Each structure stands twice: as structure tokens, then as C-alpha cells.
Amino acid sequence: MAVDYVSDTEVTSQQRFDYFWRQHGEWVEAPNQRRGGESGVQRLTSSDGRLLYAKRQTGHIYRSWLYPFGRPTVLREREALEGLRLHDVRVPELVFCGAQREAGQPWRAMLVTAELEGFIEIDQWYAAGGLERYGDVVHDRLLRELALTLARMHRGRWQHGCLYLKHIFVRVSGEGDTAAVEVALLDLEKSRRRLTRARAASHDMKQLRRHSSWSAAYWARLVYFYETAFGSAIKGLQR
């Protein structure tokens, strides 16, 4: 049996894993079959009242030259959460990560993170009238903060790997032109370090452009902020 975990308590890794595996809550992402197994996300409430999100997996693995026989994707996501924090990229707080496998059985794995309080998907912010409420000054600040976040990630050679708008969360607080803007990134199970920061940047930014709904003018502003922060232009990135 192998157990990989995050814990700041005195209990054993097996106890921690068993405790979280027994917890159940409302499905916010129903279990789906992929990567040879099953994965879904439930909403839980901790003993101290915090809202948690638990990614629960059975046999849900990825393979690489380092792990040709497969490894649970939550372990890769844990590495990304820890790595991005070192580069000042806001991501959910890691509460627990564990994976175990009995002989002859598929992997069981969990990743538990704390709610990003006050944050919503960027598309939801637009749909709720955020742009109309705050205007272009704050929206420009939002695009700049997103660009800075992505540039910090890519300068560290981290590639998100699935950079859609639904994985970009924002929190805008305050009123008028002085409103504060914060950006966070979620769903990092496809994230990995690349050999160069240019490869990480090119993959993510082109993917974001394909799957975003920004106007040409807003995209141009984002690219301007991004390339200024990144320190160079991205070849083939259409403005």
C-alpha cells in the first residue's frame, strides 16, 4: 500500500486518508469515466465550518516517462498547487491530498481544497453585470491582474494545461474606480513544468484565446499587459 498525503496533524497518513474517504457531500461535478477510471468533486463542510471541495477518484491516472504504469492525477495537481504558490499565483488552499492502492485494486485518491471565498468564475462575473457595474477602469485592472498572474505562472515554467475561462476565478471588492481585483486559477490536474517558459506560455495563451469570448479590443489589452509582464512577445499569439 502506498500513501501520499499532506498533513500538519499528529494522526497517521492512513487515518487521514480514511477520514476524508468516508466524508460525502453534494456532488458539484458528478463522477465521470475517463483516464481508465472515475473522478468527481463533492462539496464538504469541515469541522470548523469551512467549505471544502473534495476531488474523489478511483483508477483515475495519468502516465508519463516517470510513471509508465500510471499515477493518480490528484498527485500531479497537488504538485501544481504547491509550485504555483511559490510563484505568488493564487490557487485554492490545499487541505489534504492522498492516494493509496491495495494489491490488485485500482488507485483510490482524494484532493481536498478550501473554498476560494468571494471568488466566482470570470464568465459569471461578466454575466452578472460586472463590466457594466464597474466600468472600463476596473475591467482594465482585472485584465492586468489576470495577465500578471499568468505571466508569473509561465515565468516559473508552469503550464496550466487546461486554461479555459471556467478555470479563472475573480474577486472584485469595493466600489467605483478604486475597487480591488484578485485573480485565482483552478483545476490544475493537467498542469506541469515545461522545459522553457516560452513553451508554457505559448500553449496556455493560445488555448485561452481559442476558448475565450473577449472582443478583439479586450484581448489586445490582455496581451499587452501579459507580454509586458512576461518580458517578451509570444510567437504566433494573435492580438
Rank of each mutant, 00 (worst) to 15 (best):
A229Y: 11
I122F: 05
E189I: 13
K190C: 11
T45S: 12
H154L: 08
Y126E: 04
D204R: 09
F20A: 10
E145C: 08
Y218S: 01
G161M: 06
L131Q: 00
W21Q: 13
S213T: 02
V172H: 00
F225Y: 15
G176W: 06
G59T: 11
S232V: 09
L86H: 14
H167M: 07
L142D: 04
A30D: 11
R155N: 14
C97N: 14
G83V: 15
V74F: 12
D204P: 06
A80M: 11
K166M: 05
A80S: 11
L150W: 07
L86V: 13
G70T: 02
H167S: 04
R152L: 13
L111H: 14
L142E: 01
H203R: 03
Y5F: 15
R34G: 11
H154W: 08
F119W: 06
W27I: 13
E26R: 13
R101V: 07
R239W: 01
L131F: 05
K190W: 10
V181R: 05
R141T: 08
L150F: 14
E115P: 12
G231W: 08
F17G: 08
G236D: 02
W27S: 13
V91C: 13
A128L: 12
V28W: 12
G161R: 06
K235H: 01
W214L: 08
A80N: 09
E115S: 12
E82A: 14
Q124E: 06
A200H: 08
F169N: 10
A217R: 04
M153T: 12
D18H: 09
W65I: 00
D204A: 09
R43W: 10
H167T: 05
S191R: 09
Q105I: 01
I168K: 08
R141W: 01
V181T: 00
G161S: 05
W107G: 03
G83P: 12
W125H: 03
Y62L: 07
V74R: 09
Y218Q: 01
W27K: 13
R193T: 07
A216V: 00
E26F: 06
E26W: 07
Q124D: 12
F225C: 07
R108Q: 15
L51A: 12
L143Y: 02
Q159C: 09
R171T: 02
G174D: 03
A179K: 06
G174H: 04
R155M: 14
L146N: 03
A200C: 07
R76M: 11
L143P: 02
E175I: 04
